[in-house]
Write a protein that binds this DNA or RNA. Structure first.
Lengths: 195, 195
DNA sequence: TAGTCTAGAGAACGCACGTTCTCAAGCGCG
DNA sequence: CGCGCTTGAGAACGTGCGTTCTCTAGACTA
């Protein structure tokens, strides 16, 4: 029953994740989550003591999801340059899906930044984790200044996410890819990584 | 009284603009706007028949404000290249101000996209107007593909706005400026504009 | 079988907020 | 002076929603 509870809570979280991401957090009430998950409110509140707790769990889930998806997508790509460009290919593929609704973190930030300290923390944590990952990727190239390169790539990612979301097309991901290629060319990243 | 009414409505709009932008649209109720503007609810509703109408007026105001500010900032800069880089200098200056809270349109989109057709239209109108302006600036350079350059600059702008908002620093604007410089160098924009 | 404990379904509560209504005060006009 | 119209301030209403409470039905135990 311990494990049953955990499984149920996971299912609730998965349902909430889908609804929050698709329709926004404020637009989805606890009743709707209850109906979609097929549990009673009592059980729902046993899993997550408040909507705020559920929202934070949702953001943690999204963070893990994005990082797992991205690193899985990049697995097997040998060239550092191609791995970085692959970030934008991944985004392009994601943005083409019918279930794409932009960056869950930027959305949550816009909805709840004023009034929820936990959300602000979760968003910043996610962005800095992503930044570290890009820094890591930049470090595998011969770029003269990997830190700056990572900041610029993060910028492109945010811009492409916003642009794709608002415009409803995946084109900004390709624009961002082209910009990244230009940056890599200009940064000296074309040469093999230093020892 | 015609003009008095108009002046009062303008004042209401200015107050609403400040509150909406600083705290978010959902977080600011009509009562708060009434108190801050010092008018009765009746007069408020005479100026704007609903909160939705007020929000749309707010977005139109912001659109005009941003475009006027930007073009004023760029006035007098002769070099096409410097004018484009100036866009990011302007953003950097804006983002350093205490009253900076990111892009009003991206914020509104995140808050209200699901459930307000008018907001979606206003956001897209603003973004495409900005895009046309960047396209115009790109056209004054010798860039081989001004359309693509404009798309890339728009991307940088969105990314820098998001990044500056979430991080609470103006640094992303400078990152974006550096990327823009690299793009201009790579696009052939350094040469004088073609006849 | 009788008693007790649990869980589920949904009603109920409290609050926030957009919008409308009430009521009284002020002011022009016959 | 007296009548009606407008205005302002705030109460009131309806709704939505997060959270809690109630009531009933079933299961387990002695």
């Amino acid at each position: 029953m311990e494990t049953e509870d955990a499984a149920e809570c996971s299912r609730v979280l998965a349902v909430a994740d889908g609804l929050f991401y698709a329709h926004g957090i404020q637009a989805v009430g606890m009743d709707r989550i209850r109906d979609a998950a097929g549990v009673s409110l009592k059980r729902l509140y046993r899993c997550f003591p408040s909507k705020a707790a559920l929202v934070e769990a949702y953001l943690r889930t999204r963070d893990e999801w994005a990082r797992n998806e991205l690193s899985a997508y990049l697995t097997g790509i040998e060239s550092p340059r191609e791995r970085i460009l692959g970030v934008f290919d991944w985004l392009h593929a994601w943005a083409q899906g019918a279930d794409f609704h932009g960056c869950a973190f930027l959305n949550a930030y816009g909805e709840l930044a004023s009034g929820s300290e936990g959300v602000v923390r979760a968003v910043r944590d996610h962005k800095s984790a992503l930044r570290r990952y890009l820094r890591h990727l930049a470090g595998t190239t011969a770029a003269r200044d990997p830190e700056t390169l990572a900041a610029q790539l993060a910028l492109l990612l945010d811009g492409a996410l916003s642009g794709a979301h608002v415009s409803g097309t995946a084109a900004p991901a390709l624009d961002a890819r082209a910009v990244a290629a230009t940056l890599l060319d200009a940064s000296g990243a074309g040469r093999p990584a230093p020892a």
